[in-house]
Amino acid sequence: MILSGKKLIEEMQKNKIIITPFKPENVNPNSYDISIGSALNFYESDAALEAGDDSKAVRVNIPDSGIVLKKHKFYFAESFETVISDNYVPMLHNRSGVARKGLFIHITADLLQLHHKGTIKLQLYPEYDIKISAFQKIAQISFWEVYR
């Protein structure tokens, strides 16, 4: 079962889910809005990548004035928040206001693992050029009970 927003808050209070920093206004009926951090990664060259090796990526800080993601180029980033979830499986989803501007925030990789500890990895793929800024609420995560 997916947790309601109220249950998410209750489980936060029991430390069964830990989201840092936590803002009550980011809680939705069945999810929590997460923000993009301040760094952005991408591959400068069009040369073939070695599967399993992302070390060729360049990492830049998103300037205060924001950064324009180029259409049909691939970027990846991490959430600003860290999430610890030992009891529930987190899943990553786009937000409708982001998707309607043509920006994918994951590439069919929505499932996180039980005992997740750390930031949430985001894969960004825009259909059109789009300006983003650090700390924007760019995605949401839901939490799911497990069958043991």
Binding site: M1, I2, L3, S4, G5, K6, K7, L8, E10, V27, N28, P29, N30, S96, G97, V98, A99, R100, K101, E145
Partner: peptide, 22 residues
Amino acid sequence: KVSGERMHSKGYYKNYDAPTIS
């Protein structure tokens, strides 16, 4: 199915039935 008490939606787009931009 949902676990836990229901939380009401503050969603904006729920008021729209037509294709709605961001």
